[in-house]
């Protein structure tokens, strides 16, 4: 039983043993943790030091304004794949009629592929 648990996961084209990796990970964690412990852990709480860096601009009273909204993330990626995303958005109309239309369309595709028509 014990050996069965230890067995390497063999995909036929590669190997993956989470336990060995995890063990190595733990050991390196120990080393790094000790190494990190040699560093200076202190800082001055509640001073100017811990304020957010905004190139000298004042911080907003309402901190929510500092939080970049989810819809603004990955701007560059969305920008360069605009054409795909806009096409897909147009597909998703949210109407039951269109759902049925897609369903019918797929039946037609299957019929073509399987040689019924």
């Amino acid at each position: 039983m014990f050996e069965q648990l230890l067995k390497t996961f063999d995909t036929g084209n590669g190997y993956w043993n989470p336990l060995v990796w995890g063990f190595a990970f733990l050991i390196i964690f120990l080393i790094i943790y000790i190494l990190r412990g040699r560093g200076n852990p202190s800082y001055k709480r509640g001073t100017e030091q811990t304020k957010v860096f905004l190139s000298g601009n004042p911080e907003y009273e309402n901190k929510e304004l500092l939080h970049v909204k989810a819809s603004n993330l990955y701007w560059g990626w969305v920008e360069s794949t605009k054409w795909v995303i806009n096409t897909l958005k147009k597909m998703h109309t949210g109407r039951a009629n269109d759902y049925i239309l897609w369903f019918t369309f797929m039946i037609a595709i299957f019929m073509l592929l399987l040689g019924v028509i």
Binding site: T8, Y15, N17, V20
Partner: peptide, 15 residues
């Protein structure tokens, strides 16, 4: 590699 052959584990490209 260090982990080569530890319980037949080996480096894998996807990994």
């Amino acid at each position: 590699a260090v982990l080569d052959g530890i319980i037949t584990s080996k480096g894998d490209l996807i990994l």
